[in-house]
Design a protein around this nucleic acid. Structure first.
Length: 883
RNA sequence: GGACGAUUAGCUCAACGGGAGAGCAUUCGCUUCACGUGUGAAGGGUUACAGGUUCGAAUCCUGCAUCGUCCACCA
C-alpha cells in the first residue's frame, strides 16, 4: 500500500507521535553489549529549577547529533541523562515560594523545609525533561538520574570520606567569600568581578606619641577599618622606613595597631600604606598570617556591623561606611576622597557584593588533585575542541586555590561529619557514630552544612554509572567519549570532573570536550530574564518544529563561538525541511507499487552515475567532518548537496524519464532517486530526526525506524569521476543558456533551436552522449531542437553564442538579437577570461612556482590555462563576426 | 595588568596556505503537472589596517586599531 505525504510538511503532531514511537521502541536504551563498541556521552544535568532555554537547546542538539550518528554507525550508544538538585538556586526558589504562603524557612525547621524541596523537585524536576523530549533528544531516559538520588548521594558521601581519609578534605578557619544575602559561603568560581565606581578615601591614622604626625592610608572600604589590626608598608620604601614598628591610633575605636613591613605592599599604588584587615580581605588575611595579626570579624552574616563596632553596631555595611566617613571628616582625619573604579567581587547568582569573612569551612586541597588534570591536557589524554580552551583550562588549574565546599544551606548533600559536644572533636563517618572515638562522649551532632552543588556534579560521569560499585555499566561505558558543554562552565564543572575522575576512577572521565558558545539575541546581547530578550525554544518548536530549531542552531556555527538567533534563519530551516519533504513526496509519487530492481552498472545514465558518485563523496566528507566535531560544516554539506545537487539538478533531470516507455532507463532513475534519497535522509537524520524519520519509514515501510539504520559509508565502486566531468559540462551548458536568455529577456515559453559546434572529436562525443542519455533535457535548455553540427556553416547568422570549453552553442534568436548588446556581452566575457588567463599564465611563467609548487597544482593550472585559452579563442571568433 | 576571541558581500556568519562562499536582504524573470516554505538569473567584497614569511596569504608571523570575553589581591 503506497502512502502519500501531505503537500507541506507540518511538524505538529508528527513530532510528538514519532517521539512516543521511539520511546516505545526502546531505541534510546543502551545495555552492556560485549559485541559492540560503546559510545557514551553524559548529559550536563539541567537544574530542577530550570526551564528549557536556548543554551540547553544548543547543547542538547549537539549531543543528540553525535549520539544519533554513532548509534547509526553501530555503536552501543549511551546518552546518560539526569537532573541536578542545584542547591542554592533551588533553595532560593523554594524559600520564595514558601514566603508567598507566609511560611518562613527558619520557623518550619530543616526537616519540614526539605520536604518542601522534595515536593518542588517532584513537581518541577520533570518539567525540563519533558521539554528536552520536545527537542527530540534520544537520551536513555530509563537511566535518568538525579544528583540527590540514593546512588549519587552514596557516591558523594564515599568521595567525601575517601578524600578526608587521604587528608585532601579538611576543615579550617579560612577567609572565604560570603554572600550576605544568601547567607552562605561560596567558592571562588562563583565570584564574578564587576567594575564598580567607588572612591578612594584617604585617611590619616595618628602616630602614637608623636602628636601631629600621621600615616595616610587609602582605602575603598573605610568601614573595614574597625577590623584593622595593622598598617603595612613595603620594607624597601624609604619614605616609611622610620615608622615601621611604631604604633598607630586607630581612629573611632580607641585601639592601637602596629606598622608592619610586608612585600605585598606596592609602593607605587595609593599612598604606599595599606590598612590591614585580616578578617575581611583575602590579601590582608595572608599578611595577617605572616605577621601573626589578630583577625577581628566586625560583621554579622547579613552584612551588618556586629557588636564589636560600638555605635555602628547593627548598621548595614554601606550605612556604616557613610557614617564612619562623616565621623572621620568631623575629626579632621579625612584627607581627601578620590573617585576610583575597581573590580568588586559579586555573587554570580544574586549579584550581591561578596563579603570576605573568616569562617570555619570545609575545603578540598587542590594542589595534588590538579596535577593529573593538568597532565591530561599536556599529554593529549584530554583535548578541547576548539583547542584554544586548553589555555584557559590550564591557567585556571595552575593557579587553583583550595575549593571551599561547605555551604550554609539545607538543600543538598549533608556533610558526613559529626561534632562531639563533649570534646568538640569532629569525626567523619558514613553513619553517625554512637560514641565519639576521641573521648567516648555520646552526644554527637552532624555538621549542619551541605556540600557545594558542583561537588556532586563533579562525579556525574561515573556516579551515574554506579560508582563506587564496580558495575558492569561502569566497566563498559566508562570513561565516556565526549563531553559537550558551554565555555561558561569549564571552571565549575569540566575541571572538577576531570580531577575527580582521575582521583576516584584513575581515568580521565572523557577524552574530548566539545565547547560551544552562547546563543545571543539578534543584536548580540546575552539572552536574559531581566532584559526580557530571551527566546523560548518551545515557542520556536511550536511554530516551526524541532527540526527547524535544531538546524538553525547548527548552521554556520563553529565550535566555541557565540551565535545570534534570527527568526529568519528558523524560517530558512523550516523551508529546508519542507523542501526535503516535497522532494521525497515527488519521488514516492512516482515509485511503482512493487520492488525496484537494482540496475546493472551499465544501465545507469551519466546523471545517475554522477549523483551516486556525489553522494558517495559527500558521505565521506560528512563523516570526516563529524569525526572532527565540525557539526556546522557537515550539515552545510548535507544541505547543499540535497538542495542544490539532488533537488535542483538530479531530480529535474531524472523526472523526464518517468514519461518514457523505456523501462530500463526509468528503473535506473527510480532506483537512483530512491537510493540517494535514502542515503541523504540518513546523513541528515542526526540533525533533523523527525522529518527524516517520517519520510524514511514511509519510503521504506518494511523498516521500523531510520534511527537504527546503517550510517552510509564511502565505497570506491560508486566513484565515477568521468560522469562528474560530463555533468559538469552539461551543467555549464544549461547555465550558460539560461543566463543568456535571462539577459535577453527571452520568455520561457519561447523555444528555440540550439546548434552545437564542438571544438573537436571529444567535444562531439560529449554532446552526442548528452543527446543520447539525457532524455528530455531539451526542456531544461528551452530547445525546440538540439543539433550537433560539424561546423558552423549552416548556423543562422543572427545567433547569440554560448562559449564552452569544448564547444560553442548557437541560439538563433532572430529579432531578439541586439547586435550592440551582444557585442558588449561578448566583450565583457572576453575581458573576464583574459583576466583568468593572465592569472594562470602568470603563475606558470613564474620559475619559482614551477620549481616549488606541487606537481599536481602545476598540472591543474596548465589544464585551466588550456581551457581558458580555448574559450578565449572562440570568443574572439564570435566578436570578429560582428566587426 | 595579563590571556583569548572577533574584525570577510547591506545583515548574520562559513571557509583557515593554492582561483573569496552560504542564508537572509536587494534587482529582474517564471501560474514548468513535488515544493511560491518554490524556481531561474543578476548586482554586491583591494577578507579592519600596516609590515613580514612564502612561488602563492582572508588563511602563517609581527605590530596596530576597534569591539567582546575570561582571568587577576593593586588596598
Amino acid at each position: 500500500m503506497k502512502k502519500e505525504l501531505a503537500k507541506t510538511y507540518d511538524p505538529k503532531g508528527i513530532e510528538d507521535r514519532l517521539y512516543q514511537k521511539w520511546l516505545d521502541g526502546g531505541y534510546f536504551h543502551a545495555e552492556v553489549n560485549p559485541d559492540k563498541k560503546p559510545f557514551t556521552i553524559v548529559m550536563p544535568p539541567p537544574n530542577i529549577t530550570g526551564q528549557l532555554h536556548m543554551g540547553h537547546a544548543l547543547d542538547n542538539t549537539m549531543q543528540d547529533i553525535l549520539i544519533r550518528w554513532k548509534r547509526m554507525q553501530g555503536y552501543e550508544t549511551l546518552w546518560q541523562p539526569g537532573t541536578d538538585h542545584a542547591a542554592i538556586s533551588t533553595e532560593v526558589k523554594v524559600i520564595k515560594h514558601l514566603a508567598a504562603q507566609g511560611i518562613e524557612k527558619e520557623k518550619i525547621g530543616r526537616e519540614e523545609f526539605l520536604k518542601h524541596c522534595w515536593d518542588w523537585r517532584k513537581e518541577y524536576g520533570s518539567r525540563i525533561v519533558n521539554q528536552l523530549y520536545k527537542l527530540g533528544s534520544s537520551a536513555d531516559w530509563a537511566r535518568e538520574r538525579f544528583t540527590m538520588d540514593e546512588g549519587c548521594s552514596e557516591a558523594v558521601q564515599e568521595t567525601f570520606i575517601r578524600l578526608h581519609e587521604k587528608g585532601l578534605i579538611y576543615k579550617g578557619n579560612r577567609i572565604i567569600n560570603w554572600c550576605p544575602v544568601c547567607k552562605t559561603s561560596i567558592s571562588d568560581a562563583e565570584v564574578e568581578h564587576v567594575d564598580q565606581n567607588g572612591f578612594f578615601w584617604h585617611i590619616n591614622y595618628p602616630v602614637v606619641g608623636e602628636p601631629g604626625r600621621f600615616v595616610e592610608i587609602a582605602t575603598t572600604r573605610p568601614e573595614t577599618m574597625l577590623g584593622d589590626t595593622a598598617v603595612a608598608v613595603n620594607p624597601e620604601d624609604e619614605r616609611y622606613a622610620d615608622i615601621v614598628g611604631k604604633t598607630l591610633e586607630l581612629p573611632l575605636t580607641g585601639r592601637t595597631i602596629p606598622v608592619i613591613a610586608d612585600e605585598y605592599v606596592d609602593r607605587e599604588f595609593g599612598t604606599g600604606c595599606v590598612k590591614i584587615t585580616p578578617a575581611h580581605d583575602p590579601n590582608d588575611f595572608e599578611v595577617g598570617k605572616r605577621h601573626d595579626l589578630e583577625e577581628i570579624n566586625i560583621m554579622n552574616d547579613d552584612g551588618t556591623m556586629n557588636g564589636l563596632c560600638g555605635k555602628y553596631a547593627g548598621l548595614d555595611r554601606y550605612e556604616a561606611r557613610k557614617q564612619i566617613v562623616a565621623d572621620l571628616d568631623a575629626l579632621g582625619l579625612l584627607v581627601k576622597v578620590v573617585p576610583h573604579t575597581h573590580a568588586v567581587g559579586t555573587h554570580d547568582r544574586c549579584g550581591t557584593t561578596v563579603e570576605p569573612m573568616v569562617k570555619p569551612q570545609w575545603f578540598v586541597a587542590m594542589k595534588e588533585l590538579a596535577k593529573p588534570a593538568i597532565e591530561a591536557v599536556k599529554n593529549g589524554d584530554l583535548t578541547f575542541v576548539p583547542e584554544r580552551f586548553d589555555k584557559i583550562y590550564l591557567h585556571w588549574l595552575e593557579n587553583i586555590r583550595d575549593w571551599c565546599i561547605s555551604r550554609q544551606l539545607w538543600w543538598g548533600h549533608r556533610i558526613p561529619a559529626y561534632a562531639c559536644s563533649n570534646c568538640g572533636k569532629i569525626t567523619v563517618a558514613r553513619t553517625m557514630p554512637e560514641k565519639c572515638p576521641h573521648c567516648g562522649g555520646e552526644h554527637l551532632v552532624q555538621d549542619p552544612d551541605t556540600l557545594d552543588t558542583w561537588f556532586s556534579s563533579a562525579l556525574w560521569p561515573f556516579s551515574t554509572l554506579g560508582w563506587p560499585e564496580k558495575t558492569p555499566e561502569l566497566e563498559y561505558f566508562y570513561p565516556t567519549d565526549v563531553l559537550v558543554t558551554g565555555y561558561d562552565i569549564i571552571f565549575f564543572w569540566v575541571i572538577r570532573m576531570v580531577f575527580s575522575g582521575y582521583e576516584h576512577t584513575g581515568k580521565c572521565p572523557f577524552h574530548h570536550v566539545l565547547i560551544h558558545g552562547l546563543v545571543r539575541d539578534s543584536q548580540g546581547r546575552k539572552m536574559s530574564k531581566s532584559l526580557g530578550n530571551g527566546i523560548d525554544p518551545l515557542e520556536v518548536i511550536d511554530k516551526y518544529g524541532a527540526d527547524a530549531l535544531r538546524l538553525t542552531l547548527m548552521t554556520g556555527n563553529a565550535p566555541g563561538n557565540d551565535m545570534r538567533f534570527y527568526w529568519e534563519q528558523v524560517e530558512a530551516s523550516r523551508n529546508f525541511a519542507n523542501k526535503i519533504w516535497n522532494a521525497s513526496r515527488f519521488i514516492m509519487m512516482n515509485l511503482p507499487e512493487g520492488e525496484i530492481r537494482e540496475p546493472e552498472k551499465y544501465e545507469l545514465k551519466p546523471a545517475d552515475r554522477w549523483i551516486l558518485s556525489r553522494i558517495n563523496t559527500v558521505t565521506r566528507e560528512v563523516t570526516e567532518n563529524l569525526e572532527h566535531y565540525e557539526l556546522g560544516m557537515a550539515v552545510q554539506k548535507i544541505h547543499d548537496f540535497l538542495w542544490d545537487e539532488f533537488c535542483d539538478w538530479y531530480i529535474e533531470i531524472a523526472k523526464f524519464r518517468f514519461l518514457l516507455a523505456d523501462e530500463t532507463a526509468k528503473n535506473a532513475a527510480l532506483w537512483t532517486l530512491r537510493t540517494v534519497l535514502s542515503k541523504g535522509l540518513k546523513l541528515l537524520h542526526p540533525y533533523m530526526p523527525f522529518v527524516t524519520e517520517e519520510i524514511y519509514t514511509t519510503l521504506n515501510p518494511e523498516e521500523e525506524t531510520i534511527m537504527t539504520s546503517a550510517w552510509p559509508v564511502y565505497e570506491e565502486q560508486w566513484n565515477f569521476k568521468d560522469s562528474e566531468i560530463q555533468m559538469e559540462i552539461f551543467r555549464s551548458m544549461v547555465k550558460g543558456i539560461r543566463n543568456i536568455r535571462s539577459e535577453m529577456n527571452v520568455p520561457t515559453a519561447r523555444k528555440t533551436e540550439i546548434f552545437v559546434v564542438p571544438k573537436d572529436d571529444h567535444g562531439k562525443w560529449v554532446f552526442e552522449n548528452i543527446l543520447k542519455t539525457m532524455q528530455g533535457f531539451e526542456r531544461m535548455v528551452f530547445a525546440r531542437e538540439f543539433k550537433i553540427m560539424d561546423d558552423k556553416s549552416e548556423v543562422p547568422e543572427d545567433s547569440v553564442t554560448v562559449t564552452l570549453a569544448n564547444a560553442v552553442l548557437y541560439i538563433p534568436l532572430n529579432e531578439l538579437v541586439d547586435r550592440k548588446k551582444e557585442i558588449e556581452r561578448l566583450r565583457n566575457e572576453h575581458e573576464k577570461i583574459l583576466k583568468e588567463i593572465a592569472r594562470a599564465a602568470g603563475m606558470l611563467k613564474n620559475a619559482n612556482f614551477l620549481r616549488k609548487a606541487p606537481e599536481s597544482k602545476v598540472y591543474e593550472e596548465r589544464m585551466k590555462l588550456a581551457r581558458y585559452q580555448a574559450v578565449q579563442a572562440q570568443l574572439l571568433e564570435q566578436l570578429k563576426k560582428y566587426e
